[in-house]
Each structure stands twice: as C-alpha cells, then as structure tokens.
C-alpha cells in the first residue's frame, strides 16, 4: 500500500512536469509543424536563471521567477529566428539538427558561465513534508500538477479569450486564412516558440527545488517530454497533459515494482508498441491526405 502511494505521488508529480514541457512541443507543432529540440535546455535555463536571479542577484522570487520566464521566452524567440526559421524558409528539415545543436551550445555556454557544480534552488515548499498514508509528500510535488493543469487551463483561456490567443489558434486551424485576416503568421510562430520555452522554463523552476540546478539537468527531461508529446499525439493539449501523467505513472510503477533498471527499457518499448498500433499517438488525429 505504501509502495503504491509512493509510486502514485512520484508518478503524478513527474508526469505533470513532463506534461508541462511537452505542452511546449505541442504548441509549436500545432502552429507550424516544427518543434524546438532544445526544449530540455529551456528547462535548464529556467532553473539556472531562477537560481542566478534569486541567490546571486538577491531578487525576491516574485520578481525573479517572472524575469526567468521572460528570459526563457526570449531564448525561444532567438531559437526560432536563428535555428528554425532559416531552414523552414528553405523547406528543409535541418531545423531538427539545428535545434539539437542549439541545445548543446546552450548547455555548454551555461556550464562555463554558471559553473560546473550542481547548486540547489530552495523553496519553502520542500522544507517539510506531509505524511500521507505512510509516505511523504512535499507540497512542491503537489504544486507541479496544480501548475501544469493551471497552465493548460490558462493557455486555453488565453487562446479562447484574448485577441492574440485567438490569432494563434487561427494560425493553427487555417494558416492561409489567418494571413488573410491580417495576422502576422511569422510573429505568431515566433510567439509560439516563446510560449513553448516559457512552459519549459516554468517546469525547470518547479522541479529545481526537488532536484538540483546544473547545466545538463534538462537533457533527459527534454527527451522524456518529447516522448510524452508524441505519445499524446501532438495535436491536443489535453491529450499531451494526459500522456504526461500516463508516462509519469508508468515510469514510477515500473521503478517501484520492477526496479529502476527496467524503467527505460519498459517505458520506451511500450512507447514503440503504442506507436506501432496508433502511429499518430494515443490522442492524435491523422489528417486526410490529398493529392
């Protein structure tokens, strides 16, 4: 029983975090069919900026974290402008490699500026744990799903209720018609990359107190989140969030009941199996092909 609860707590917390990062993949993929493969580095950037602004610059969290997110957003814009758009304009798929390289570059640039030692970003929400049914839970762990679901809801509100949000939705649903409405699609794509990086940065800020802050902390999160986005089908935000929880839970249950040695093997084999049966993901829809 304790094991079950422990697995549930771990799975939901991490799953929400994967979902949050994966949401970033989903947004840019919906808007322009491309993704930022440096998304893991954006997770790291959020945590590193959060650390630098609070611990080194001494800013209060309320100021520092929004600034960190803005920093991530700007980086998203830069990535789109330098590593995605030039290739998209050529009709080339090389943005895939370019963003991977961008991630390597960013990780190493941070290594030399931030330092090579893991640091700790504290949060009042990890100081004391709550004991629930024999296992402990940090409030921070509960905060992650809350923020993730909140972010998904907020995005939905943003899309449905604001002018720019609706313009973004318009680009997703019909890019050609969106241009005829006078929507600057280039700006919207740029914005989607900013948003995507900010979601990753938020995930970084949330996970940092439970983990540690270092230059290569994001790589694995980025890959797992990409798996989640693919599993969710890349087309629906709620599908991706759901896939995040699913992934987190499977991961935690495999670790708990089979041992961590088998986690990657089982989880990724399951992923391939799911895609073999549903090539466009669990909740994705395949578009009708036309010639």
């Amino acid at each position: 029983m304790t094991l079950l609860i422990a697995a549930l707590v771990s799975g939901l917390g991490l799953g929400a975090m994967y979902g949050l990062v994966a949401l970033g993949f989903q947004i840019t993929y919906s808007v322009c069919g491309r993704v930022n493969f440096a998304q893991g580095s954006m997770v790291m950037l959020g945590a590193v900026l959060g650390y630098v602004l609070t611990v080194r610059a001494g800013l209060p969290v309320i100021v520092a974290y929004p600034l960190a997110l803005i920093g991530c957003g700007l980086m998203g814009v830069v990535v789109e402008a330098l590593l995605v758009r030039p290739f998209a304009n050529r009709g080339s798929d090389a943005w895939l490699m370019a963003t991977v390289a961008g991630g390597i570059l960013l990780d190493n640039a941070v290594l030399f500026t931030f330092g090579n030692e893991p640091r700790s970003l504290s949060s009042p929400l990890v100081e004391t744990s709550w004991q629930i049914l024999g296992t402990g839970v940090y409030p921070q762990q509960l905060l992650i799903p809350v923020v993730a679901i909140g972010a998904a809801l907020a995005l939905q509100l943003l899309f449905r209720r604001t002018r720019q949000g609706r313009a973004l939705l318009a680009v997703v649903q019909n890019p050609q018609a969106a241009r005829l409405m006078g929507i600057n699609t280039g700006l919207m794509i740029s914005g989607s990359f900013a948003l995507s990086a900010m979601l990753a940065g938020a995930a970084g800020l949330l996970i940092a107190p439970l983990f540690s802050v270092h230059s290569d902390m994001g790589t694995l999160f980025g890959i797992k989140a990409f798996a989640v986005a693919i599993l969710g089908g890349m087309t629906s935000a709620w599908g991706v969030m759901l896939a995040g929880f699913l992934y987190g839970l499977v991961e935690a249950f495999v670790t708990t009941y089979l041992g961590s040695s088998y986690t990657y093997i089982v989880v990724f084999a399951l992923l391939i199996a799911v895609l073999a049966i549903k090539p466009s993901g669990l909740f994705g829809t395949a578009a009708l092909r036309k010639v």
Binding site: D93, L96, F226, I230, L271, L275
Partner: peptide
C-alpha cells in the same frame, strides 16, 4: 511514421 514520430521511435530504440 514520419517526421517527429519517426525520430521518437528511433530515439526510443537507441535508449532500449
């Protein structure tokens, strides 16, 4: 599969 889906399947394979 194509595009990112294919990329993911091959990444998963490498991890396995």
């Amino acid at each position: 599969m194509a595009g990112p889906f294919l990329a993911m399947v091959t990444i998963a394979f490498a991890f396995i």
